[in-house]
Computed example of a mutant assay.
Amino acid sequence: MDYQNIILEIDGPKAKISLNRPEVFHALNAPILKELASAFQELGENETIRVITLTATGAEAFCSGADLKDGMANAGRPLGEILAENYEPLIIGIRECPKPVICQMNGIAAGAGMSLALACDLIIANDKTYMTELFVGIGLMPDAGSMYFLPRLVGVQKAFELCSTGRKIYMEEALQLGLVSKVAPANELEATVNQLTDYYASAPTVAIAQMKKVLNLTYESSLQQMLAAEAKGQTRCGFTEDFGEGVMAFLQKRKPEFKGK
């Protein structure tokens, strides 16, 4: 696909997707949402890719949320239809992508931009930025997955507060709440993310994918169902080359060299 609103860069086993609508602080409209969904599908199916970074060009914003001008063009159309058509494929695509997805949150993440960040497996954030569920300011409720991810991270009561006030969540608090995994100074953000992507680029990719798949089931499954999912995923891991390499490296007292197979 010829991408117009995002930049896709591939460096060996590492891929980076950058939102690229700086003139509107990377606001989300139908074209960029479709491009993002396509990119995650493409990278998920690419066996050479072992880790994906999601970020944005520039330094002012990660994503300012839905493009309200795009919304005006759809005036009168049920918002649920727009979500189902444009947002749901992307959010589900990130969660079902068999590769770890790291959000490099280089700037403000607001509204659906916060939802997009929360859909990632890990968030590494610029220490000077903030997140906000600002939907209430225009008379809407959070969407694009926020009502799923947020209470699972911070609890229902705190999620209600953050959603119903739309207040800014600066990174010190976000770290305390567990909304982000790590906070770094702006000039160290990329290097911090690169350290993490280097790790995942040499990690046992199939095992990581199975972890992500089974963890996605945890809130909708009984203990018995989770045990069955673990057994199924572990069976898949047990037939990988990486498992054999890991055992051999342990016995030989050396660092394993995982191939992601």
Results as ranks from 00 to 15, higher is better:
Y219L: 13
D127K: 15
I102H: 03
F135C: 08
A109H: 01
L90M: 08
E42F: 00
A203V: 03
G260K: 03
M248V: 10
S64R: 09
A37D: 08
K99Y: 14
A39P: 02
L179Q: 07
L83T: 10
F62I: 07
G139D: 07
P204R: 10
S38I: 03
I7S: 03
S115A: 15
G107Q: 02
R152L: 12
V136D: 05
I82Q: 13
K168H: 09
L68T: 12
T235G: 04
A174S: 11
Q41V: 03
Q157H: 10
V206Q: 07
S164L: 13
K14G: 03
D70C: 07
A125R: 08
S164H: 10
D242H: 12
A228D: 14
P78A: 11
P98M: 11
V51E: 02
E188V: 04
Q157T: 07
A228W: 00
A75N: 11
L189I: 03
E161H: 11
V136W: 05
G155C: 11
R21L: 12
N5Q: 10
N126M: 08
L28K: 05
K232I: 04
C103Y: 04
V101Y: 06
R152Q: 15
K158M: 13
V206N: 06
M114L: 15
R77D: 02
A186E: 15
R152T: 00
Q176W: 05
L19S: 03
Y199M: 08
A66E: 14
A109W: 02
E35W: 00
P204W: 14
Q210R: 13
F250K: 14
R21M: 06
A30Y: 07
E161G: 00
E23S: 13
V136Q: 08
K14V: 14
R254D: 01
G76K: 13
N126Q: 09
L177S: 01
R236W: 06
A229W: 12
I208S: 00
K69S: 06
E96K: 14
N46Y: 03
N187W: 10
D70I: 01
I7V: 11
S202A: 13
F258P: 03
E230D: 09
I169G: 00
A117F: 14
M72P: 00
T218P: 02
V156T: 01
S181Y: 15
I169T: 06
L162P: 05
G139W: 02
L68F: 11
A110L: 15
P204M: 11
K212M: 15
P151H: 11
E188C: 12
E85T: 14
C237A: 10
A159G: 00
N86Q: 13
G65N: 04
A249K: 11
P204D: 08
L43F: 06
G12K: 15
I102T: 00
G246N: 09
P89G: 04
Y199P: 03
G65H: 01
G111D: 04
C63L: 04
Q104H: 11
K128R: 13
G58R: 04
L177Y: 11
Q176F: 09
